[in-house]
Design a protein around this nucleic acid. Structure first.
Lengths: 115, 115
DNA sequence: TTAATATATAAGCATATAATTATATTGTTT
DNA sequence: AAACAATATAATTATATGCTTATATATTAA
């Protein structure tokens, strides 16, 4: 695994972003699976704009990528970022978000009908 | 190396603390060498109370230990903490603070006379 | 015991942060 | 084109944060 160093200022910015429970959970989820906003909406007890704003911060630092697919915008971890190694190493110490993933897959918000 | 997981809430608190340039630098320095407040005072451009307050936050979470030795109080990383593994893995991505260490050793604030 | 040094705590203040509600934008479906 | 759905942005607000100055505490030295 690559362990390049990233400048103390830049490192501090990432850690500040990850130092919020919501964003840390988002990133942990994204390590397992890409998600769209409406999926995050299922597992976080907050408004849609709040979720969008958290994702924006992650995107502004280049930690996540977004990709529009029809009416949904999918977010995923940006493994090309020079910060990806740091994130991976942090996530090793964070519990896997299996419960949240199940919750997302159970509610399946991107399927409107049950077919 | 031990890689135990630490609860997402607790992980977020550590990362929030490390998400400040001053504290991240402090921790990076402490990885190399224990320090007293007056030594930190040499390398950070801020008041003594600010430094004490940053150290207090690190201590409140158990990241650092303090030990009084005469009139000085020395701070060091608490390798007994369940968070130590996380900190170590973060520090791998942060540049070594050789310049600051040199600065401390050059000014040598705990020696009053030159003898 | 008085003065000096090292550190901690308290109070105050300016800025940053994370949430909310309201509204705009973009794409889809009819 | 009109209505709807998903997401983003803007404005506002309450709280948290990080700094400063002033003061307290503890240790050492004269």
């Amino acid at each position: 695994m690559l362990k390049s160093t990233v400048g103390i200022e830049r490192a501090a910015s990432v850690l500040k972003l990850l130092g919020d429970k919501t964003r840390l959970t988002m990133v942990a989820i994204l390590k397992q699976r890409e998600c769209c906003v409406c999926e995050f909406l299922e597992v976080f007890d907050m408004s849609q704009p709040s979720i969008s704003q958290h994702l924006r911060k992650l995107k502004d630092l280049g930690l996540v990528k977004e990709e529009r697919r029809g009416q949904w915008i999918y977010y995923s971890l940006n493994s090309q970022s020079d910060l990806y190694g740091l994130i991976e190493d942090v996530l090793v110490h964070v519990p896997v978000q299996t419960e949240k993933i199940k919750q997302i897959e159970k509610s399946n918000p991107t399927l409107r009908c049950g077919c």
